[in-house]
Simulated assay, not measured.
Amino acid sequence: MIASLHGTVQHVGLDQVVVEVGGVGLLTHTTPGTAAALRIGGSATLSTTLVVREDALTLYGFGTADERDLFELVQTVSGVGPRIALAMLAVASPDQIRAAIAGGDVAALVKTPGIGKKGAERIVLELKDKVGPLVAADAADTAPAPTGTGHGQVSEALIGLGWSAKQADDAVAKVTAADPSLTEVSDLLRAALRQLGPS
């Protein structure tokens, strides 16, 4: 198991990064928030988990070990795979997810694309006693990445996380109308995720 990696950032996408470790570039899937905190040429330290399938080895990276641990925990529930687990962390913080599970807040959980009412109820039932105590986290301690403008890029990232094209476009339109000063892709993406996610 690859539990963490530390190296130089070679590429930053909206939901994935490439980190060079010992001369090898490792493609690491991550949340938009984690990707936005990294800079090309800068140093990165990520907590990671390697998902092994018959046809692929996929590395997922997180800004904190807490995010990684929750990513792994929610996948113990039948029907929750890496894509849904990553989308949960893109929509809400680990503490928000734990609070929703501990409190049986199905409405908050179904805001993640790919999770229906029955799936949310199953997550609550299976994990209510396993989520552990809430951890005080530093909210939004990352700076926006200077990635330029592009509503299309934000919509594509949201669609990649599981929302429909209409949901993605509507969210981008709403946050742009509410705050026209949002021009950076990472800022737009964060605002759109807040719009789509639990309040």
Rank of each mutant, 00 (worst) to 15 (best):
V175Y: 02
Y60S: 08
T176F: 10
A178V: 02
Q16R: 15
L73Q: 01
T147Q: 11
A168W: 05
I115T: 08
H11R: 13
Q96K: 07
G33C: 13
T45D: 12
G197R: 08
V18D: 10
L89K: 03
R122W: 03
R190A: 00
S164A: 06
S181G: 11
E126W: 05
T45C: 09
A35Q: 03
L46D: 07
L57N: 06
I115K: 09
Q96F: 01
I84L: 06
E126M: 09
G41I: 04
R190W: 06
D179R: 14
D170A: 14
A102C: 11
A139M: 00
G79E: 00
G25W: 10
I40A: 00
D129A: 12
R122M: 07
V12G: 13
A99N: 02
Q153S: 05
V9N: 08
L109Y: 01
A137P: 05
G61W: 04
G33E: 01
A85N: 05
A35R: 03
S186D: 12
V24L: 15
A85H: 08
D15A: 15
L46H: 11
Q167T: 09
A137N: 04
K174F: 08
E72N: 14
A120C: 09
K118F: 07
K174M: 11
Q16M: 08
V135N: 12
A157C: 14
D187T: 03
I101R: 05
L73W: 07
A100H: 09
K130C: 07
A99C: 07
A35M: 09
K166F: 09
Q153E: 14
G132V: 10
G104T: 02
G63M: 13
S186V: 08
P113Q: 05
L193A: 10
D66R: 14
I84M: 06
A37S: 15
R68I: 05
L59I: 02
T30G: 06
W163D: 03
V12S: 03
P94W: 02
D141G: 15
V77M: 00
L127E: 00
G7P: 13
